[in-house]
C-alpha cells in the first residue's frame, strides 16, 4: 500500500510536469463545469440571500430551514432525481441534458445552491443593519443600500462562493449519474478517480486525486487574490 502511495505521488508529478494533455483536459473540464455551476448558483443564490437577509416577510424562516436542510443533500439522491427528470422519457427529457456537460452544470448548480444561500445569509445577517439605513440617508436607493451591505459582508459571502465551488468540483454522484463519465465530454477529475481505482489503477487514481486537490487549492488561491484586489 505504501509503495502504491509513493508510486502515486511519482505518477502525479510525472503527469503534471509532462503536461499530459488528457489529464490537463480533464482538470480544465472540471474547473469549467464546476466554475459555471458556481456562477449560476451565485446568480440566483446571492440575490435570494440578500432578499432573505434584508427583507421582512412571512415564511422567511421556512425558506432558511429548507436551505439548511439542503446543505446535507446527498449527491446521489439529487443525481437520481435529476436523472429521472433529465432522462429521455422524463419531464425535462426534451432538453437533452442527460450525459451532457450542461446537465452536470445544472445539477451541480442546484446541489450547491443551499451552501451559497445559507452561508451568504448568515454572513449578511451579521452585517450591522444600520449600514443599509446609512446608505439610504446618504442617498442610496433600496438596491444600492443592499449592495453596500453586501460589500460589508463580502468576506463571508466569498467564503460561501468558495465553499460552493469546492463542493461542486469534488462531488461525484451528479457527475457520474448525469454526466455518465464519457471520455472527452463529461469525464471530470472525480469520475476519473472512481473509474481508475475500480480498474485497479491505484497509482493513477492517487495522481488524479492529488491533481484534484491542487486544482481546488489553485482556484481558491485565485479567488483569494481576486478578493484582495477587489477589497484593496
Amino acid at each position: 500500500m505504501n509503495s502504491e502511495i509513493i508510486n502515486g505521488l511519482i505518477e502525479a508529478l510525472r503527469l503534471i510536469f509532462s503536461g499530459s494533455s488528457i489529464v490537463n483536459d480533464i482538470a480544465i473540464r472540471s474547473i469549467y463545469i464546476s466554475g459555471l455551476a458556481t456562477v449560476l448558483a451565485v446568480s440566483w443564490g446571492i440575490p435570494l440571500a440578500m432578499l432573505v437577509s434584508f427583507r421582512e416577510f412571512t415564511g422567511k424562516n421556512v425558506i432558511k430551514g429548507v436551505f439548511n436542510i439542503g446543505l446535507g443533500l446527498p449527491t446521489v439522491t439529487l443525481g437520481l432525481l435529476l436523472y429521472l427528470l433529465f432522462s429521455r422519457s422524463g419531464p425535462l427529457g426534451i432538453f437533452g441534458l442527460l450525459y451532457s456537460p450542461s446537465g452536470i452544470i445544472m445539477g451541480q448548480a442546484i446541489l450547491i445552491t443551499p451552501i451559497m444561500v445559507s452561508f451568504s445569509v448568515s454572513a449578511l445577517e451579521a452585517v450591522n443593519p444600520d449600514i443599509r439605513e446609512l446608505a439610504k440617508t446618504l442617498g442610496a436607493s433600496d438596491i444600492q443600500a443592499s449592495v453596500a451591505a453586501l460589500k460589508e459582508g463580502v468576506k463571508g459571502v466569498s467564503l460561501a462562493v468558495a465553499g460552493s465551488f469546492n463542493r461542486a468540483v469534488s462531488e461525484l454522484g451528479i457527475a457520474l449519474m448525469i454526466g455518465g463519465n464519457i471520455r472527452g465530454l463529461t469525464r471530470v477529475l472525480t469520475t476519473t478517480i472512481a473509474l481508475e481505482s475500480s480498474r485497479g489503477e491505484v497509482a493513477l487514481s492517487i495522481a488524479i486525486a492529488i491533481i484534484l486537490i491542487l486544482t481546488i487549492t489553485g482556484v481558491n488561491f485565485a479567488m483569494y487574490l481576486v478578493k484582495r484586489i477587489w477589497l484593496r
Partner: peptide
C-alpha cells in the same frame, strides 16, 4: 427616495463603511 436625497442624518452611534 428622491426626497431623501435632499437631506441626510448622522446617527448617534457612529456607523461607518
Amino acid at each position: 427616495s428622491p426626497l431623501r436625497r435632499r437631506f441626510t442624518m448622522v446617527f448617534q452611534n457612529t456607523v461607518l463603511f
